[in-house]
Simulated scan of single mutants.
Amino acid sequence: MNVRVLDVVGELKQLRRGRGIAAPQLGQRVGPALRAVCEISEGEDAAAIRRKVSERLQGLVAPLPDDLRTAVLAAFGLHDQARNQFYRERVRWVAVELDRDDRTIRRRIDQGIEQVAELAVAAERSAEPAHPSRRWHTEYLRVTLALDQPVPEAFEFRRVVADADDIAELDLALTLTTPDARRSVAETDLQVDVFHGGSLSERVMESSDRVGLALRLPSPLRRGERHEIALRFRAALRYPHYVCVPRHPVEHFELHVRFARPSPADIVLLDKVFQDDARNPAARGPALSPDESGEVHVDFRQLAPGFAYGVRWRAT
């Protein structure tokens, strides 16, 4: 389905009315656009719809500024301190909380809803699969990328948190890029070693340049449990960029890149850009300068699924 931002905005404004997410006949108030971005299947009951919409909205509001995030969560009755019966009461609570009048709060709710809709549609249209129903998320991801080795390699340390019971497998993926656009990436271009935290149960080419990985955990996780994994990736390609495009929410992503000498002439920060823009030299970001060791270090918080975060460089 080709989802439009305008359609998502309209359906969200209908959903916030009355009891919001706690509306008795929620299935009748969730239209086709929301069903698409929340991956709601035909025939799902009200409880499943309520869970999927709640989880999707909570994930989408995460990158918003604090005031908009508070306003939007309260508008739908998702804020722990604003589960009032009716919309006008929830607006009043936000007004008191933020020390603003009701009219200002209504405007901020509208602004937040528009940004949520844009994020939802961007994830839907992303080259990565649409954000799934939330079953786990990454609390912390640290990647160290070494480009000064005979074969470039990346060490990935990830701490995940289960958002549901019986999480036995993690779906991961890595997109590789080659300087020769005429050549598709082969599965053999990527070597993966698991240092700890599970075992690879499947790897498959999801597209011409994306390798899907399934990591089987030592034992299933229960809701709220944390688990750490460590992986090493090696690929005989000289990447022009390295980005994280999360499928599941990521709270904190830290990236270290060590460049070969001489350092690239042009290194830029990519912060919440469309995945296609990560590959486009015309899409600019803040310039980065390597230190005396030829390294750059960047840090990101509250990554939105479907967007790209990392660095891009151009060789001298």
Rank of each mutant, 00 (worst) to 15 (best):
A122T: 15
E55V: 09
E156R: 15
L170H: 07
L141Q: 11
E39L: 11
R301P: 09
E225T: 00
Q115G: 04
V61G: 01
V96I: 10
G306S: 08
L288K: 14
Y87F: 14
G285E: 04
L217M: 01
R56H: 03
L60F: 08
A235S: 13
F86T: 08
A33N: 08
L215C: 04
R312Y: 00
H241W: 11
E292P: 03
E292F: 09
S126F: 06
V273K: 01
P262D: 04
D276C: 05
S289L: 13
E153R: 15
Q191S: 13
A186R: 15
D80A: 13
A260R: 14
E44A: 03
F76I: 07
V9S: 07
D110C: 07
S201P: 08
A154H: 00
S289I: 09
A22S: 13
G285K: 00
W93A: 02
L6Y: 15
I267M: 04
A287N: 02
W136K: 07
A120I: 05
E206H: 11
R182S: 10
I113P: 00
L98E: 03
L213S: 12
D276W: 09
V160K: 03
S263N: 11
A315F: 11
G112Y: 02
E39G: 05
G212M: 03
F259C: 04
P179C: 03
G294L: 03
L141K: 06
V91R: 10
R16F: 05
V185C: 10
D7R: 02
K13Y: 04
P132V: 08
D291V: 02
S219P: 06
P290W: 11
E295N: 10
A122P: 07
L34D: 11
R51K: 13
I167R: 06
G18Q: 10
Q149N: 13
D209K: 01
T175L: 07
L172D: 11
R232K: 13
E156N: 09
G212R: 13
A230M: 11
D80W: 06
G294P: 08
R50S: 03
P63L: 05
V185H: 09
I229S: 06
L213E: 09
V268D: 13
S293M: 14
E202T: 09
G59Q: 00
Y239Q: 13
R83P: 01
C244H: 12
V121Q: 03
A168L: 09
F307N: 15
L147S: 00
Q58Y: 06
R159A: 12
R88W: 05
D299Y: 03
V94L: 00
I40P: 04
T104C: 01
P65T: 05
T70D: 08
A282Y: 07
G310K: 01
L217I: 08
E11F: 03
S41I: 12
W93C: 04
V9L: 06
R134V: 14
F155D: 13
D102R: 09
